[in-house]
Nucleic acid binder design. Structure first.
Length: 434
RNA sequence: GCGAGUAUAGCUCAGUUGGUUAGAGCGCCUGACUGUGACUCAGGAGGUCGCCGGUUCAAGCCCGGUUAUUCGCCCCA
């Protein structure tokens, strides 16, 4: 392979199925999942927002927290020609909240329900389910402190997953309380693992001490062992947080969403408080499908008045990876027809018929390279057309068109005037069969 | 950012202890078939062996570097 250029490290081309060897990056899968996401979000009243691909880096430092790994070392940043310090967005929530403030969205009544589909960028080492350019589907509910908001986000996420065929994802929830609770908890953690810490070099120790809560979901077994017997964070949270958490659970139970309380769930971004959650699936080993929770302090941190909010970010690549692991069939859509010019004299009628079909939303492809009939059928096959429509001298004489079902090879002729009706009803039938 | 593996035709991969013109299957093109694709048969095209350098009479194979990719760690979507 002497090709000079390739997609940058950790990025992927999302292209039609026949060309893509990794099914996860077949375009029709993305189109399907995104369409289902928007439909589902719409059912809950969430409106799409599209924010720029880059922002002032300060937005992310303020919102995600300087200590967070994402800001600390995974930001894709640069200075533009105007000396502005820019970051490609590492996550979707902060930009949406920035837009929320910039356009005064809270001033026409709350809560606001917003959703997005976007690129995110993280300068990490790429691997399975980890990319430098990744895609997230997100929903945010802004302006409500109600535990019903938390439950709604989780329920909507659950509905979306079952819509695309994932019923096995487990909902893991936790309550991490407010800032005060977390700092008390942090002290308790450091205290609990003090003997483990004293065995570490200064660099590691500094890293651990910077954000002890993050240690909880570590996979390092000595550290895991050291954490054994630690009192759960729920011992440190306020009565109010506790009551809210109970309410969230009650609502999920009412909505028949099975969930598990996992006291080890923390989140990578510092802006969360109280309810946090993840969806995990056994087919996606070690990686979470999505993560979210409540972030009451975020909007204030980026310069707005205190506004409670909750949301979710879903990893699109991971979702598709899960679908692939489950071997869920997701066929590429087929072109309705390919019109074959059986004789040279039929070429102009073929173009006319094509125009007529397209005007009626029946997709069709025709030969534009003077290929012979054999090659045209080959093209029809490659186009993945459902029907070949054949026009030649015989058909023109009789005002008919010959229809060939490419899958069954069945072939018959009908009057040209009946073609549209015939196609309309046959194509609908095909859709129903799926 | 750290550790390990991989890189040969469009795709999936063979390639012996270094030895002359680097192979297979699938795909692609042409014909058998002058109004029929996916099946069958016959023929054909396609590779500076990821890139750069080194060792050697000789490198796809050995050594160093580099880039990409996979897996694990860190972290997260």
């Amino acid at each position: 392979m002497s090709q000079k250029f390739q997609a940058p490290r950790g990025t992927n081309d999302i292209i039609p199925a026949p060309f893509q060897k990794d099914p996860i990056f077949e375009i029709h899968r993305w189109q399907f999942v995104e369409a289902q996401f928007l439909l589902n979000a719409w059912n809950y009243g969430y409106q799409e927002v599209r924010t720029p691909m880059f922002e002032d880096i300060e937005l992310f430092i303020r919102s995600s927290g300087e200590a967070s790994e994402v800001v600390n070392k995974e930001m894709y940043d640069f200075y533009d020609k105007g000396e502005r310090h820019i970051a490609l967005k590492p996550e979707g929530t902060a930009p949406v909240m920035r837009a929320f403030l910039e356009h005064g969205m809270g001033n026409l009544g709350t809560p606001n329900r917003l959703c997005y589909i976007n690129h995110s960028f993280r300068y990490g080492r790429p691997g399975k389910g980890r990319y430098r350019q990744l895609h997230q589907l997100g929903m945010e509910i802004v302006g409500s402190a109600s535990p019903f908001a938390d439950a709604e986000i989780i329920t909507a996420t659950h509905d979306f997953f079952s819509r695309v065929g994932i019923d096995s994802a487990r909902v893991m929830i936790n309550c991490i309380g407010d800032f005060t609770a977390r700092s008390k908890f942090s002290e308790a953690i450091l205290d609990h693992i003090s003997s483990y810490l004293s065995d570490q070099d200064t660099e590691t120790r500094a890293k651990l001490e910077r954000n002890p809560v993050r240690l909880l979901d570590t996979k390092e077994s000595p550290l895991r062992a050291a954490l054994q017997g630690l009192a759960p964070i729920t011992d440190f949270i306020s009565d109010e947080s506790k009551a809210n958490f109970d309410q969230v659970q009650a609502e999920l139970t009412d909505s028949e969403i099975p969930f598990t309380i996992d006291p080890m769930i923390v989140r990578g971004l510092d802006y969360y408080n109280d309810t946090v959650f993840e969806f995990i699936d056994d087919d996606l080993e070690g990686l979470s499908l999505c993560g979210g929770g409540r972030y009451d302090a975020l909007i204030e941190q980026i310069g707005g008045k205190p506004t409670p909010a909750a949301g979710v970010g879903i990893g699109l690549e991971r979702l598709l990876l899960t679908l692939e692991q489950k071997q869920l069939k997701l066929e590429a859509p087929q072109i309705d027809s390919f019109i074959v010019a059986a004789t040279e004299g039929a070429r102009s009628q073929v173009r006319q018929l094509a125009a007529e079909l397209r005007a009626n939303d029946i997709s069709c492809v025709i030969d534009i390279d003077d290929r012979n009939i054999k090659q045209q059928f080959k093209s029809a096959d490659r186009t993945n057309a459902i029907y070949s429509l054949i026009l030649g001298d015989d058909e023109l004489k009789m005002n008919t068109v010959t229809i060939k079902n490419m899958a069954t090879q069945e072939q018959h002729s009908i009057k040209q005037t009946e073609l549209l009706d015939w196609l309309a009803s046959s194509l609908v039938q095909d859709e129903d069969d799926e």
